[in-house]
């Protein structure tokens, strides 16, 4: 069985900030990481591989990004992926969701045309759009299940526990299929030293648009239906009254007074 994991390198989002004075980005000390939800997807794939040895599961990690995005592939290999592919080309610059999913589709078809299951994170913590996996599934013409927390393989079918607004639902579909993963019982692991060393012997390949025979007119900004008009800092918030709460009795009284004054509690 062949599982493809779609992964993304993201900045540690909560560390990116805008300087309120100049409106410019403060980038110092911002590390790039493997998107946490992609790690959950990988963790799920590794679990399936361990639980179902008879299926000879092979895990292929694919990412699209600049050359430095290779770092997340090394992490995937350390965490249990068998091989990694970086789709990287200057011609991809300016790609929005539609074009990114086009490139990923072409990459998947080129690298692993006989895949059974594609796993991806439910969203990336930088853009939070949650759209690329679903658009990729549509372009591949395969069914999708989003917001999965647990995946079971049952013959030719995959059964997924999916988060809904009120709880969960169990959905089933025939493979090949794409499933996006929320956290569930999956965890972010730290590869052992041995795993890191072993990963250096696993293959990573970089593919350009030409390598994948992608029509240049289908990629990059020119092909992207959405375009960023401008980027700006959100309006700064200053906050209201802040009181000292070192004496809990006084603090509780102040809280009660505030709620009464603002009609949340009848006075």
């Amino acid at each position: 069985m062949k599982i493809v994991i779609l992964v993304k390198q993201v900045p540690e989002a909560d560390k990116v900030a805008v300087d309120p004075e100049t409106g410019t980005l403060i980038r110092e000390g911002v590390d790039s990481i493997l998107n946490p939800y992609c790690e959950y997807a990988l963790d799920q794939a590794v679990k399936l591989k361990q639980e179902l040895p008879e299926l000879n599961i092979e895990i292929t990690a694919i990412t699209m990004g600049p050359p430095q995005a290779k770092a997340v592939l090394y992490r995937c290999l350390g965490l249990g992926a068998d091989k990694g592919y970086l789709l990287s080309d200057r011609k991809f610059a300016g790609s929005d969701v539609w074009v990114t999913s086009t490139a990923l589709k072409e990459g998947i078809v080129h690298i692993e045309p006989n895949f059974d299951l594609i796993l991806a994170g439910k969203q990336a913590i930088d853009g939070d759009t949650a759209q690329v996996p679903a658009e990729t599934a549509e372009q591949l013409g395969i069914p999708q299940i989003t917001y999965g927390v647990d995946v079971k393989v049952n013959g030719k079918r995959v059964e997924v526990k999916r988060e809904t607004e009120t709880g969960y639902q169990i959905l089933s579909t025939r493979m090949p299929a794409l499933v996006t993963m929320s956290k569930g019982s999956n965890i972010r692991r730290i590869p052992s030293m041995q795993q890191v060393l072993d990963s250096r012997n696993k293959p990573i390949e970089t593919l350009t648009a030409t390598d994948m025979n992608i029509d240049e007119n289908k990629i990059g900004l020119q092909a992207s239906p959405t375009q960023v008009d401008k980027i700006f800092a959100p309006p700064a918030k200053t906050g209201g009254e802040i009181v000292d709460g070192s004496d809990p009795k006084i603090a509780a009284q102040k809280l009660l007074n505030y709620l009464v004054e603002n009609n949340f509690i009848k006075g």
Partner: peptide, 22 residues
């Protein structure tokens, strides 16, 4: 606290029981 209309700097574990009592 930057987005709060009213903020209390203190220990929630001490303040909540006092508040419930009050």
């Amino acid at each position: 606290f930057k987005v709060a209309d009213f903020g209390i700097v203190g220990n929630m574990h001490e303040i909540i029981p006092e508040f419930i009592k009050l």
